[in-house]
Simulated assay, not measured.
Amino acid sequence: MRVQTLCFCLSTALAALPVQAQDAEEGRALYTDFCAVCHGESLQGDGPMAELLRVEPADLTQLMKEGGFPVLDVAQRIDGRMQLRAHGGEMPLFGSFFEGQGRDVAMVGQGGQPVMVSRPIADLIAYLMEVQS
């Protein structure tokens, strides 16, 4: 019982430690390497592969239309947990690249709920947050 209490206290203390800020410039580079082919350099769904997809790529400059930035939804789309018909399954096809890239970091989701994501996903989300219209 004491070990459980100690583990709980330790994990709570570690969770309260500040994490490095996300790197939007690194996110921009990741976007260019992995996302622009479908979503375009403009982020508006006009990439060179867009016309080959069954479903039009989203305009990534409009993610905040519904209010706050949907951190959890975007993270789940990037890492493949939320699948899209456009790809016939996993989205993106390289979602596994973004897993296990160092220590996960916490981001604040809608409603203030913390969301743990890999560093590359946090960087991509930081970039996408900067480009919202």
Results as ranks from 00 to 15, higher is better:
Thr12Cys: 14
Gln22Phe: 08
Glu26Arg: 15
Val3Trp: 08
Pro114Val: 10
Thr5Tyr: 11
Leu43Met: 07
Phe34Ala: 03
Ala16Glu: 06
Arg119Leu: 03
Leu10Arg: 13
Ala86Leu: 07
Ala13Pro: 05
Tyr31Pro: 05
Gly27Trp: 03
Leu52Met: 11
Asp46Leu: 07
Glu51Leu: 10
Leu60Ala: 02
Glu51Gln: 11
Phe94Ser: 07
Ala122Gln: 03
Gln4Tyr: 12
Pro18Glu: 06
Thr5Gly: 07
Asp73Gln: 15
Thr5His: 10
Met1Phe: 14
Glu56Ile: 07
Arg28Asn: 08
Gly45Arg: 01
Glu99Val: 09
Cys35Gln: 00
Met129Leu: 10
Arg54Trp: 09
Arg103Cys: 04
Val3Cys: 06
Ala16Phe: 06
Leu53His: 04
Arg28Lys: 15
Val55Asp: 15
Phe97Cys: 02
Gln76Asn: 12
Gly100Val: 00
Pro92Cys: 02
Gly95Trp: 02
Val55Cys: 05
Phe8Met: 14
Met1Lys: 11
Gly40Ser: 08
Leu52Glu: 08
Gly95Thr: 09
Ala24Asn: 10
Met129Gln: 13
Ala15Lys: 10
Ser42Ala: 14
Asp23Phe: 00
Leu72Gly: 05
Val74Gln: 01
Leu124Ala: 04
Glu99Pro: 00
Phe94Asp: 08
Phe69Ile: 09
His39Ile: 05
His39Met: 02
Cys35Pro: 01
Val108Ser: 12
Pro92Asn: 02
Ile121Leu: 08
Ala58Met: 15
Met129Arg: 11
Asp104Gly: 09
Leu43Phe: 06
Glu130Pro: 08
Thr32Asp: 11
Val108Tyr: 08
Asp104Thr: 09
Val117Thr: 03
Gln76Ser: 11
Leu17Ser: 13
Gln83Glu: 14
Ala86His: 03
Arg85Asn: 05
Gln20Val: 12
